[in-house]
Amino acid sequence: DHVTVQQIHEVVTAGILEDAGRYRTHNVRITGAVKTPPDWSKVVGLMDGLIRGVAESRMHPVETAAFLHHGFVEIHPFTDGNGRVARLLANLYLIANGYPPVVIRTEDRGKYYKCLRSGDAGDLMPFAGFIAKSVDESLTLYLSIFGGADELVPLKELARWVPYSQEYLSLLARRGVLDAVKIGRVWHSSRRAVERYVGA
């Protein structure tokens, strides 16, 4: 709702902006942006529509998070801090729906902005795909530090604990027979995944 959005903005920009937590009351331009944010007098109505759209969404939660994030940035309801608030709102939505928050890494910033611009042109799918990939990376990271039988480890290390060679595990991973994920250029899996393969 409006109150939550404004409270989040106030927390994020307190001591930085004079109008922290308040929707803008004048028009703004974004340096380097192709689109100009809507007239300030339309902000409340557009935010009503965005809030309603998220509440009534029948899309997958990851797609809805992308819709929320892009829609918020497009409306640009505050004079500054909109990107930070959009990322927080999308992450809160993901967490509320059982998904981990996403982190936009420095090296992914260019792709992040490019996908946002695709949304500006009417195609939200690249941005939804970007968010989905970021969710997947977050899940992988959490599983890799979780520990126990579910801990993701490189296949080379996993081969020491199971009766299969690294090469055989790699073959199973590439064929999609063994639940595994590539982190960088290295395949990772877990002892539980190998147990599932053996029991199949």
Results as ranks from 00 to 15, higher is better:
residue 57 S to D: 00
residue 92 L to G: 07
residue 104 I to L: 08
residue 15 G to V: 03
residue 108 D to P: 08
residue 181 V to Q: 07
residue 39 D to G: 14
residue 122 G to D: 10
residue 90 A to M: 15
residue 80 D to L: 06
residue 155 L to S: 03
residue 57 S to K: 12
residue 10 E to I: 00
residue 141 L to M: 08
residue 144 S to R: 11
residue 42 K to T: 12
residue 52 R to G: 09
residue 119 G to W: 04
residue 123 D to F: 14
residue 183 I to Q: 05
residue 42 K to I: 05
residue 136 D to A: 13
residue 63 E to I: 12
residue 7 Q to S: 06
residue 11 V to N: 02
residue 188 H to D: 00
residue 123 D to L: 13
residue 122 G to F: 10
residue 134 S to F: 01
residue 89 L to A: 15
residue 32 G to D: 13
residue 180 A to E: 00
residue 76 H to P: 02
residue 158 L to D: 10
residue 82 N to W: 03
residue 113 Y to L: 15
residue 127 F to E: 04
residue 76 H to W: 03
residue 22 R to P: 01
residue 168 Y to P: 08
residue 157 E to W: 01
residue 107 E to I: 09
residue 40 W to Y: 15
residue 17 L to W: 01
residue 42 K to H: 12
residue 125 M to A: 15
residue 20 A to P: 06
residue 120 D to E: 15
residue 127 F to P: 01
residue 108 D to N: 15
residue 198 V to G: 11
residue 27 N to S: 09
residue 102 V to Y: 08
residue 200 A to E: 13
residue 192 R to E: 08
residue 41 S to R: 14
residue 131 I to A: 03
residue 179 D to M: 02
residue 109 R to L: 14
residue 50 L to I: 11
residue 86 A to C: 11
residue 142 Y to I: 13
residue 62 V to W: 04
residue 135 V to D: 08
residue 72 F to N: 02
residue 55 A to W: 04
residue 34 V to S: 14
residue 4 T to F: 09
residue 105 R to C: 05
residue 195 E to G: 14
residue 174 R to A: 13
residue 11 V to F: 01
residue 43 V to R: 06
residue 187 W to K: 05
residue 153 V to C: 03
residue 48 D to P: 07
residue 47 M to P: 11
residue 174 R to L: 05
residue 111 K to L: 14
residue 43 V to M: 09
residue 145 I to V: 11
residue 135 V to K: 01
residue 181 V to R: 11
residue 128 A to D: 01
residue 165 S to R: 04
residue 163 P to M: 11
residue 157 E to P: 02
residue 21 G to I: 00
residue 72 F to Q: 01
residue 87 R to T: 12
residue 77 P to M: 05
residue 167 E to T: 11
residue 179 D to Y: 03
residue 188 H to P: 00
residue 19 D to A: 08
residue 9 H to S: 04
residue 67 F to R: 14
residue 27 N to K: 07
residue 96 A to F: 06
residue 158 L to P: 00
residue 78 F to W: 04
residue 170 S to G: 14
residue 185 R to H: 05
residue 20 A to E: 03
residue 43 V to C: 06
residue 9 H to I: 04
residue 183 I to R: 00
residue 160 R to L: 13
residue 40 W to L: 01
residue 34 V to P: 04
residue 33 A to M: 09
residue 170 S to Y: 01
residue 144 S to T: 06
residue 147 G to Y: 04
residue 5 V to F: 08
residue 118 S to M: 14
residue 160 R to A: 12
residue 165 S to L: 07
residue 38 P to E: 07
residue 60 H to L: 07
residue 36 T to V: 12
residue 166 Q to M: 06
